Each structure stands twice: as C-alpha cells, then as structure tokens.
Computed example of a mutant assay.
Amino acid sequence: MSDVLKSPPAAPFTGAKVLAVTSGKGGVGKTFVSANLAAALAKRGHRVLVLDADLGLANLDVVLNLHPKTTLHDVFTGKATLDEAIVKAPGGFSVLLAGSGMVEYSRLTPEVRDEFMDVLRSLMPRYDVVILDTGAGISDVVLFAVSLASEVLVVATPEPTSLTDAYAAIKVLATQQKRQHVRMIINQTARPGDGRAITTQLQQVLDRFVTTGSGRSVRLIHVGDIPADPSVREAVMRRQLLLVNVPGCPAALAISEVARKLDESVISPSEFGGRKTTVP
C-alpha cells in the first residue's frame, strides 16, 4: 500500500477545510448526508463545494437531480476546464460531479492520484469547505480520498451489518492512516440517544482491539443522530434536498445541528471562543 494511503498529509493544501464523508457499507445515506450537510453549511454563510469522490460509482448527480454535461472525468482527460465542470446545486453550494461507470477510476493508479490531487489543490483557495463524498468501504480509491481530508465523518445506521463495516473502516483509518479521531453520524435512528449509545458501544470495541500509532485507541466523536423520518424517503425519491424542501422536518433539523457543531468545532473555531480543532 502506498504511503499516501497510510497517513493523512500533515498540511497537503492551503485554503478550505476538507471533510471526508464515508461509510463502511453502501446504502446508509452517505451521499444524502453529504449533500444536505453542504446545504446546511452554506446556509451558515460558508462557501461550500461537494466533490463526488466515488469515482467509479458516482450518484451525487442523482441525489441532486442534476444532469451535467461536464464531469470530473472530462477534467482529468483535458476535455474541459475545472470551471466548466463546477455546477451550482440547489441549496447554495457547488458540486463537482464524477462520471458513473468509469472502470478506469475504480482503482487507484498514479495518474488518478495525481489528477485528483491537482483538482483538489485548485479548489482549495476558492471555498471555505470542501466535502469529499467518498465511496463506501476500504478500497484504495476510498482510502486515498479520505487521506486528503483533515476530518473524517463516518455515516452508519443502527443495523448490525452497517456497524460491523463501520468498525472495519475505522480500524483501517486508525491503523493505516494513524487517525487519532473519527467523527460519527448515526443515520435512521429510532429514538433520541440511540446514536450516542451506538457510538459508545463502537468505542468500547475499538478500545479493546484497535490502537493507533501513538498506542492509544482511536477516539470516536459523536456529532449527531439523524432520526428515521418519512420526509427523507420522499425527498430522495423526488431527488430533492431535504434542507431546501422540508427544512423543518426532524431529519433536516438534525442535519442543521450537525452543521452547527462542525462549524463551531472544526470549520470556524476562532469565531466561537477560540476552541482548537485538535483532539487531546
């Protein structure tokens, strides 16, 4: 495994705060969270771009009901400029979409790695926040995208398969990328407090079986629950942003609260009492 996958760059770029939204398995609402979190952060006054980092199986365009003529693939191949590929999304943020079904991007080659880093380096000065909507699992493409982020948000649901795969993904991030902390979002919770309880249980397992390079176990930071809400399914089926169309529903309010926590602790800490983004 290449060194770039083993540890996050200390300071790879300057400019935007880079957040990777990832998951152990598919179908847990990762892209839904990425898009609506972007809308919530844009509403808080930030310049936000979501980069579809699921290079082989992209579906951010489906969630946002966008039909781009130009994608990240065109930028990589020199058929279009970066400016031509950036699209305005509903919700006040920008997106850079990847083409779906691109087999050549399903594995990490030196060319893909360099092209991706060049694009990210160009984006950084333009935005306050860049959200990387990664693929699910622990493939080399997913781990590479995550390695470029200063903060990682793992999305999971209360289902046992989701939690098992989330544990596996966090273990890899702790052991190979030397992540000291990972932020958790538990989606589709049935009752208030369920997500925090799940995060605590995962932490206990990690404490027993996984240590980072420092000899300490990786720390999970619970940033929020998103309750099971029929408005979510309706928005997904209609390809609409929840934060735009039903901003007062329970799931939308929960995502707005996640955005507030991230804003205060990670994105703009100096504006909120000078709190630091590092974790003791």
Rank of each mutant, 00 (worst) to 15 (best):
K276R: 15
K88N: 15
R179V: 06
T277F: 08
D194F: 03
Q188A: 05
L132P: 09
E271L: 15
Q180M: 05
G195P: 00
V48N: 02
P247S: 14
D207Q: 11
K79D: 12
T278W: 12
R260Y: 06
V130M: 12
R183E: 11
T189P: 01
G193A: 03
V62K: 13
V172A: 03
V218A: 00
L108F: 11
G45Q: 13
H46T: 06
T77E: 15
A254I: 02
Q177N: 00
Q188Y: 01
K79A: 13
R239G: 01
I185A: 12
T211F: 01
N245E: 15
V205M: 07
P12G: 02
I226H: 12
I221C: 01
T278K: 08
G45M: 13
G27P: 00
G274E: 15
A85D: 07
A53S: 14
S147Y: 07
T71A: 00
S268W: 10
P8W: 02
T31R: 10
G26E: 10
S162Y: 04
E159I: 04
F13K: 03
V63I: 13
V182T: 09
N187E: 08
F272Q: 08
D194E: 14
L262H: 03
N245W: 13
A251Q: 00
A228P: 02
L220R: 02
E271A: 15
S214M: 09
F116C: 09
V172Q: 07
I221R: 12
V141P: 02
E151L: 03
G26K: 09
L262C: 11
S231L: 03
A228M: 06
